[in-house]
Measured scan of single mutants.
Amino acid sequence: GLPEGWEMRFTVDGIPYFVDHNRRTTTYIDPRTG
Rank of each mutant, 00 (worst) to 15 (best):
1 G>R: 13
1 G>A: 15
1 G>F: 11
2 L>Q: 02
2 L>P: 04
2 L>N: 02
2 L>Y: 03
2 L>D: 02
2 L>E: 01
3 P>N: 03
3 P>V: 04
3 P>W: 06
4 E>T: 13
4 E>L: 13
4 E>V: 13
4 E>G: 09
4 E>W: 13
4 E>Q: 13
5 G>A: 07
5 G>L: 06
5 G>M: 06
5 G>S: 07
6 W>L: 02
6 W>D: 00
6 W>P: 00
7 E>W: 07
8 M>P: 01
8 M>T: 03
8 M>G: 01
8 M>I: 10
8 M>D: 00
9 R>V: 06
9 R>S: 04
9 R>D: 02
10 F>K: 07
10 F>H: 10
10 F>T: 08
10 F>V: 08
10 F>S: 04
11 T>M: 02
11 T>Q: 06
11 T>S: 09
12 V>T: 13
12 V>M: 12
12 V>E: 13
12 V>R: 14
12 V>P: 13
13 D>G: 12
13 D>W: 11
13 D>E: 13
13 D>N: 14
13 D>M: 11
13 D>H: 13
13 D>Q: 13
14 G>Q: 06
14 G>F: 04
15 I>L: 09
15 I>M: 09
15 I>S: 06
15 I>T: 12
15 I>H: 09
16 P>Y: 05
16 P>V: 12
16 P>A: 10
16 P>T: 07
16 P>H: 05
17 Y>T: 03
18 F>H: 00
18 F>Q: 00
19 V>T: 06
19 V>W: 10
19 V>I: 14
20 D>T: 06
20 D>L: 07
20 D>S: 08
20 D>W: 08
20 D>I: 05
21 H>V: 10
21 H>N: 10
21 H>K: 10
21 H>A: 08
21 H>Y: 11
22 N>W: 10
22 N>L: 14
22 N>F: 12
23 R>N: 15
23 R>T: 15
23 R>A: 14
23 R>K: 11
24 R>T: 09
24 R>V: 09
25 T>L: 15
25 T>R: 15
25 T>W: 15
25 T>G: 08
25 T>N: 09
25 T>H: 11
26 T>Q: 13
26 T>D: 06
26 T>G: 06
26 T>K: 14
26 T>L: 14
27 T>H: 08
27 T>W: 07
27 T>D: 02
27 T>A: 04
29 I>E: 11
29 I>Y: 09
31 P>D: 01
31 P>T: 02
31 P>S: 01
31 P>K: 00
31 P>V: 02
32 R>L: 03
32 R>A: 05
32 R>M: 03
32 R>F: 05
33 T>M: 12
33 T>F: 10
33 T>S: 11
33 T>G: 11
33 T>A: 11
33 T>V: 12
